Simulated scan of single mutants.
Amino acid sequence: MMQQVYPQVFHPYAYELNKDIHFAAAHYVPSEEAGKCRYVHGHTYFANITIAGDLLDSSGFLVNFADLKQWIHARFDHQQLNHDAAFSDEDPNRFPTTEVVARTVYEIVQSHLDQMSNRPKCVQVYLRETPTSYVVYRPKGMV
């Protein structure tokens, strides 16, 4: 795994957990303005998910690293993102751009965290699409 320095997000919580996950996936951006990206192509995405909270669960975890991997890697690895229900060819806010994939990763993770008794929060998703391009998604109202 490559060592990476990620942008820091400031938050009021005692614990912060970061999990690196990679997945290989194909996609296309269904817009004429997308240029070459409107054609099916693939990436090896590298995601860093930042979760914060004040309470640990009954196992002593903020969240289990294995669960995070299951929620994201198992869903997106070796898939065509356009075929996933989270994305749409009709709504630009749901085209599988790097920005929307980062936000979708957040939405998936936070929906699982909302079911946990210790109520951790996903405070940042960093998603690298290529060696020179990445997006950081932070939900509004975290600080």
Rank of each mutant, 00 (worst) to 15 (best):
Y6H: 12
A25D: 00
A102F: 13
A74V: 07
F87K: 00
Y13L: 00
Q80R: 12
C37H: 09
S117F: 12
I72F: 11
D67R: 04
V105E: 00
D84N: 12
T132H: 08
N18W: 08
V9R: 03
V63F: 11
F95Y: 06
K140H: 10
F76T: 01
Q124T: 13
H83I: 03
A66I: 07
T132I: 06
G42V: 12
D67T: 09
V109R: 01
V143M: 05
G60L: 00
A24F: 12
L127K: 06
Y6W: 09
Q4F: 11
R128F: 14
S117I: 12
E107C: 09
Q80E: 06
D91H: 07
F61Q: 06
E32D: 10
L81R: 01
Q115K: 10
V40R: 14
V136F: 03
A25K: 05
T44M: 07
W71P: 15
Y134K: 08
S88C: 05
M1H: 09
R38L: 03
A34C: 03
D57V: 02
R38C: 12
H22I: 15
Q110F: 03
M116W: 15
G60K: 05
Q70W: 13
G35K: 05
E32M: 07
G42W: 11
D114E: 15
E99P: 08
M142G: 12
S117G: 12
F76P: 00
D57K: 00
F76Q: 01
Q110C: 05
L17G: 02
A74P: 05
Y126E: 00
M1G: 13
A25G: 14
Q8H: 07
H27L: 01
N118W: 13
Y15C: 01
Q8T: 06
R138K: 15
L127E: 04
V29W: 04
Q110P: 10
M1A: 14
H73R: 08
A25M: 12
V100F: 02
R75N: 02
D67W: 06
Q79M: 07
E107Q: 06
N93S: 12
P96S: 01
T132L: 02
H78S: 02
M116G: 14
V29D: 01
F10K: 11
Y13V: 04
E107I: 14
T98G: 13
R119P: 01
P12S: 04
R94Y: 03
H43Y: 13
A34L: 11
M116T: 08
A24C: 13
A14W: 09
I21F: 09
I49M: 09
S59I: 05
Y28C: 02
T132W: 14
I49P: 06
F23N: 02
V123E: 03
Q3H: 14
L56C: 12
N18F: 02
N82Y: 04
Y28A: 02
V135I: 10
E33T: 13
T44N: 15
D114Y: 10
P92C: 04
S58R: 15
V101G: 13
W71G: 11
E107N: 08
K69F: 02
L62Y: 04
S133K: 07
R138A: 03
T97L: 04
M1K: 13
A25Q: 02
V135N: 08
F23C: 00
H43E: 00
T130D: 05
R38W: 13
G42A: 06
Q3E: 11
